[in-house]
């Protein structure tokens, strides 16, 4: 599967979106749905393996070659503490920019593009420490709970002894 090239199709929509609303790319891990702001997404690719990196935590799946630059892949399931994903060709890597770096997030599937209102974003309920560490907030869409991923938090702490 080729990169989906979603960006071009989506630019129009995001331009239309009102100031107060937010466009998200939603993706799933098991029956959980997570989202990231669409503007941070660079491309979406099918999983095609990665070269493992030694001395890194289990959620670092390794590195891939993205048109000549080396990009690390983070396993979101493992990041949330649910063990490593056993990826197949149907799994998906969402390439995003975090600051000036590009990273890939391994997820089960990309499910949707959602437009939500900023007013509908709620704080992460206390109690689950991993969730509150890795999520910026929670939003309900079509009676589904969507966790908003805090990318900076997800990619930090990648080294073994960090």
């Amino acid at each position: 599967m080729e990169a989906l090239g979603l960006r071009d199709d989506l630019n129009d929509k995001s331009a239309v979106a009102a100031q107060n609303s937010l466009q998200l790319i939603a993706f799933s891990i098991g029956d959980q749905t997570y989202g990231v702001e669409i503007t941070t997404v660079r491309e979406i690719r099918a999983w095609n393996g990665a070269t493992p990196l030694p001395n890194t935590r289990e959620f670092v799946r390794g590195v891939i070659n993205l048109r000549g630059t080396i990009v690390p892949i983070f396993d979101l399931r493992a990041r949330f503490g649910d063990g490593q994903t056993s990826p197949t060709k149907n799994h998906v890597v969402v390439v995003m920019s975090v600051g000036d770096k590009w990273v890939g997030i391994l997820v089960d599937a990309v499910s949707d593009i959602l437009t939500v209102s900023r007013d509908d974003i709620h704080n992460v309920p206390e109690g689950n420490s991993i969730d509150s560490e890795l999520l910026n907030g929670i939003v309900t869409h079509d009676s589904r709970m969507v966790g908003l991923i805090d990318l900076h938090a997800v990619v930090s702490g990648a080294k073994m002894d960090a």
Partner: peptide, 14 residues
Amino acid sequence: IKSLEENFERVEGI
């Protein structure tokens, strides 16, 4: 040679 640090960080032994 490509940099790992461009998008990631330095990895020991690499």
